[in-house]
Every structure is written in structure tokens, then in C-alpha cells.
Nucleic acid binder design. Structure first.
Lengths: 330, 330
DNA sequence: TTAAGTTGCAAAACCGGTTTTGCAACAATT
DNA sequence: AATTGTTGCAAAACCGGTTTTGCAACTTAA
């Protein structure tokens, strides 16, 4: 049922129907009587306007694109949930996609989203998207980057204080009396990972001990082969504490170590909290990013841009919290 | 840049441009020379068609709606990921939304998706959506229901064998020598939960022992207050094994019990696997739904419907696997 | 009584595409 | 030379809406 058919059936013009449906009867000077007749019929048949046509005519799609690396992940999943929840009151729906860390997929996704006329984009970028992001900015499409920054690009950004939090974590281990702290991270130039690494290196150097960094492959499926991990520990038998740059690295590594080493003797801190950190023995100390606060800030930022596109770029850093559990007690 | 502007700039008609862009130059009998001139210009300016207008004209949106309870969940998140991954090769994008288990939100979401002309809907329904689902079926919009069935409704459905798997789990505990098995479940009439309960009751009765069922509130945030759980165990001191109807119930309950009971003496099986089940002590035996297989089947089913809308409804049951870990050893 | 203002709606233009039809201009046939 | 057939593209109709403009018919004021 289209607006044309309604108009035909009621023997009025479709402009009249449109005005009435959108509550602009007054403005279009439609008589109350006719307005009621139209509304009654519309309700009777349960008319639902075609949002595509509407968007085409108005230029507003009421849709936001959300692009993350992996919606099944324990960081992005909840973030996506909170973003959606906070966006709903504003009348926006979410188009989402996972990039699997592949810039080609990411760019393809971005393209189709733009073609579908999303009004704004929330993006956790992969490396290799710089050009596309430039393009979005040039087009003045509202954009919020989160989690990982794009180096050398001025955009709206919401993220946590990776560098500072990392320092805090390592310092915490030192304070607890651990002296040879190794960092386990992924082999990736992602800025947030680099920041975490930088924080580690700085504290360790200040302390006068030598850094020990284990870089695992980006694709975590490959970690199953435990030899790299074992070698690392054999080469550095002095290690007495581990700092993980992500929660899943911690989980994966512990799975490997659990079967072979007495992990309970290591001091452990991980970046990002995880459901199981409260449950395993020992419970795991971590740096917790406040997911809900981050999501809220992302939404606020995109809404601000949607309201006045010329708004200045804002970078919001939301501090993470060190959650101290047993794994960092000696 | 619209197709009109391209046409104007090249001094040709927009129909010609459209035909060329869509590779129908032949069919429209456009000369090779002109076709090339158009293509060159299109590439030069990096023209991107407006997908809204395209969809309006063609009636195809190349979009599928995915509605789940909570995209941040360890079941729905990965399922969503795999659905998206399997749908991409067919050229479909995914519109997703979380219902938070609220039928009003669910129905609102469904409405806007239909207004946005999604070509198909993948839905894990909440209770109270029966009417809407009927409406979708009547409209012949391709639909796949998953995870939880809608009672008394013939639709495409993909899910696991809740009843059988549940029996297998309980039988396993009996086989291992546990004699008083309690079931912890949520207080919800969701069919899949009822099926799991039915399986439990049947096996326990056959065995001749008396069923002990702890129903926790649906909104799991409320479980933090541990008194209900404690009372239950005090009332039934004979319990020597626990069967959880979901993984998160198991996690939540263990958190409570860990601080108060020596859980390692209980036999434990949970429905749905969880990342941490391999890591905690003891590792947790569970019933694992094959997420990827389920997602693939969902996609196959929706694609089948998209190809010929008149296809018969198909119910696919994908068996779950019992993953035996230490928590069920005596 | 006539000019000016209102009222109430229809008509038309537009959003950006797709697809069918129409029609010149040229070529081929008889 | 007249008829018929192609070729190559333009024009128009359509998808389903929104919004501006136009215009009768009726009021009001002078």
C-alpha cells in the first residue's frame, strides 16, 4: 500500500495525504474533517511508509554505520550493544559490519554504507583505511573514530588512555615486588598497541630492568602452536611477571601455560577486563575500559556532529581503571 | 554527483548513463564509443550511485535484518559475525538490532526494518512477537527464526536439539555416579528453555530420583543477591551435581558459590560452551552448540527463500555436542 | 460591488535512480 | 524510389515519498 493508492482511494491528492500523515495538516491548511478521514483510513489499513522513498526525498536516512573488527568480540560486542541502546532514543538505527581486520573488506563496507546514505559513521579503523577516512572527512559525513586512533589525522576520537594506563599497570607490578616483567602483545602497528607498549617500555627502563617483549601473531588462531611461547620463557627464566596487552592474549597464553607451568607464581596484569578474570585461580588483575561510558561518549559525539556538521573535532580520552585482583599479589 | 549531473555534463540522457553503468550498454544498443566516454567520466569523478534511489527503483535493498536479544552476548555475537560473513558473498549487508528481550522494542525494530525494505529477516524472537511474525509470513517476507522456536507457528527454523542434548547431559552425570542432580535455569517460558527442562525432568524421573529445580530471574543482573542460591542449597543438602540451562547462569552461580562453597565437589554440566570453561578449575563440561554451523544453515535458509519465496518452510536441527571436561568427573 | 485576503486543497517539481518505449537517421532490400 | 529494417540514443513513465506553488472558492473589508 503506497501513499498514491491511499490518495486514489480517498479521492484526494497525495500531497494532502503526506501532509496529514506527517502531522503537517495545519501547515498545509488541511481541514480537520479531511485530516481525520485520512488518518482513520491510514490506521485502518495499517499503512507503513516506505522508508527508502522517504529518505530519498528528505535526504535523511536515520541510520548510522558502525564498523568494528569483530562483533563477536568481548570488547566490540558490548560496545555495539551500548551504542545501539544510546542511539535509539534519537531515532537512529545501526548498520553494522565486521571488518575481520582486512582493509579491503573495511573499505568495501564503508563504500556500501555511504551508498546507502548513512548519516554518520562510527569506526574502529584498521590500518590501510587512511585514504577512505580522508574522503569521509572531506565529504563532511559525521564520523567518530574509536578504540584505535589514526595517526596524523584530526578526527573525532573516543578512546582510553592506553599509554598512561599501561604505565600504571606495570608500575603496579613493580610496586608489588616483581622485578622482571615481560610484556606479551600482538605483532601489530596499531596505535593503541604501540601506546601500551610505550608505557611498558618507559616504566621498565626507568626502573632499570631490561624489557622483555613477546610479540605474538595478529591472527590469534595461530597461537595454538605453543612453541613460541615456551621458547620465550626458556630464554628468559628470570621472568616473574607478565603484562598482557589484551585480555584474549592473556586467556590464550594462560591456556598454554596452565598445562605446563605453575602460573600461580607469576604476577599477571592484562589490558581489558574479561568475564573469566574473576573466576579463575588466581583471579586476574586488569585494566578495565569503561565500555558503557565509551559507548555513551561515542554517541554524544556523533549526535553533536549530526546536529551541526561544522562542529570542531573532539578527542575524548576516557580513563581506564586498574582492577586489582589476586594475580598481582606476591 | 548524481546520474543527472553526469548526463548533463556529457550531454547525453540519463537513461543512457544508467544503462552503461549497469553493463547493459549492449541491451540498450549504446555504441562502444559513447559507452567508453561515459565509463571514463564515471571513473574520473568516482561516481557512487545512491543506493536508496536504486533500491526504490528496483525494489531490491540487498539488506537483511538480524534481530537478536543481545549482540554483546557470547552466543549471539559470534552468530552475528558468522551470519554476516556468510551473507557477504551473496552481496547482502546486515541491519542488526538487539531487543533486550523486550517485545515492544522488538516490534518497533521489526517495523523500521520492514519500512527500510529489508529483503529478509533473521530473528531470534522474544515472547510476545507472535502477531508480528504472523504478519511477516503473510507478507511473504523471507524469514528465518533461530535459537528459540515460536510455538504453534510454521516457519523456517534453525536450532539445536535442546531436549535430546539436555537428556544426554543429565544422563552423563548419572553415568559418572552422581545421584542427586539439580537443574539451575531461568524463570522463563522460552521454548528452548522448556525443552531443556523437559529433558532434565525426564531423565531424572526415569532414574527414580526427585527433581530439584532452581529458577533464577530472567534479568540476570538481579542474581547478584546470592540469598536465593544459598537457600536452595541449604534446603537440598543432598545435591551432588548441577546442570545449568545456560552458560551465563553457570558463570554467575559459580561466582557466588566460589566464595562460599567448595564447588569442586559438585558435578557440573552447562548448556552452551564458554571461553572460560576450559580455564577455570575444574574445567567445565558442557553442551556445545556449533555456532558456525548454525549460522551457515541460517544463511542457506534465508538465501533459499530469497531465491524462491514460495519455498517450503524448513526446520533444521543441528545437534549439539557434549564436551566432557573435569567438572563432571567424580 | 469590487478589491483584497483567506481557506482548502490539488498540481507539480523534486529526490536519484531503472526500464520501456519512441523516434529520428541511416542502411538495406525490392 | 519507395518500403522495410536497423542502429543509437532520447524521452517518458515509474518507484514512493516531500514540499513548494498555484488556484479556485469563499470571506471580509472598503
Amino acid at each position: 500500500m503506497s501513499i498514491n493508492e491511499i490518495a486514489k482511494h480517498l479521492k484526494v491528492s497525495k500531497s494532502t495525504v503526506s501532509l496529514v500523515i506527517n502531522g503537517k495538516a495545519e501547515q498545509g491548511r488541511i481541514s480537520k474533517a479531511l485530516a481525520k478521514r485520512i488518518m482513520d483510513y491510514v490506521e485502518e489499513i495499517g499503512y507503513k511508509p516506505n522508508a527508502l522513498a522517504k529518505s530519498l526525498a528528505t535526504g535523511k536516512s536515520r541510520t548510522i554505520g558502525l564498523i568494528v573488527e569483530n562483533i563477536g568480540d568481548s570488547f566490540f560486542g558490548p560496545i555495539a550493544l551500548y551504542i545501539e541502546e544510546n542511539l535509539r532514543p534519537y531515532g537512529y538505527q545501526v548498520f553494522y559490519s565486521s571488518t575481520f581486520g582486512e582493509p579491503e573488506i573495511a573499505n568495501e563496507i564503508l563504500n556500501t554504507m555511504l551508498e546507502k546514505k548513512v548519516e554518520g559513521i562510527i569506526l574502529s579503523p584498521t590500518l590501510g583505511q587512511e585514504e577512505q577516512i580522508h574522503y569521509i572527512i572531506k565529504k563532511k559525513t559525521p564520523l567518530v573514530i574509536f578504540d584505535r586512533r589514526v595517526v596524523g589525522l584530526k578526527t573525532n576520537y573516543v578512546g582510553t588512555d592506553n599509554y598512561t594506563a599501561s604505565k600504571k599497570a606495570v608500575q603496579h607490578l613493580l610496586d608489588k615486588g616483581y622485578s622482571s616483567i615481560a610484556m606479551v602483545t600482538i605483532d601489530s602497528p596499531q596505535p593503541q598497541m604501540q601506546d601500551r607498549l610505550r608505557g611498558y617500555l618507559e616504566v621498565v627502563e626507568q626502573h632499570g630492568s631490561s624489557p622483555r617483549v613477546l610479540k605474538l601473531p595478529f591472527r590469534t588462531e595461530k597461537i595454538k602452536d605453543s612453541s613460541t611461547v615456551q621458547e620465550f620463557f626458556q630464554q628468559h627464566p628470570d621472568i616473574d611477571a607478565l603484562y598482557f596487552s589484551t585480555n584474549y592474549l592473556c586467556v590464550k597464553t594462560l591456556k598454554i601455560l596452565n598445562t605446563q607451568f605453575p602460573t600461580s607464581t607469576f604476577g599477571i596484569v592484562a589490558f581489558d577486563d574479561h568475564e573469566l578474570f574473576e573466576l579463575i585461580n588466581p583471579t586476574i588483575t586488569c585494566i578495565r575500559q569503561p565500555l558503557e561510558a565509551i559507548a555513551k561518549e561515542i554517541v554524544q559525539t556523533i549526535i553533536r556532529q549530526l546536529k551541526h556538521a561544522e562542529a570542531d573535532f573532539v578527542e575524548t580520552i576516557i580513563p581506564s581503571e586498574l582492577i586489582i585482583r589476586r594475580s598481582s599479589e606476591k
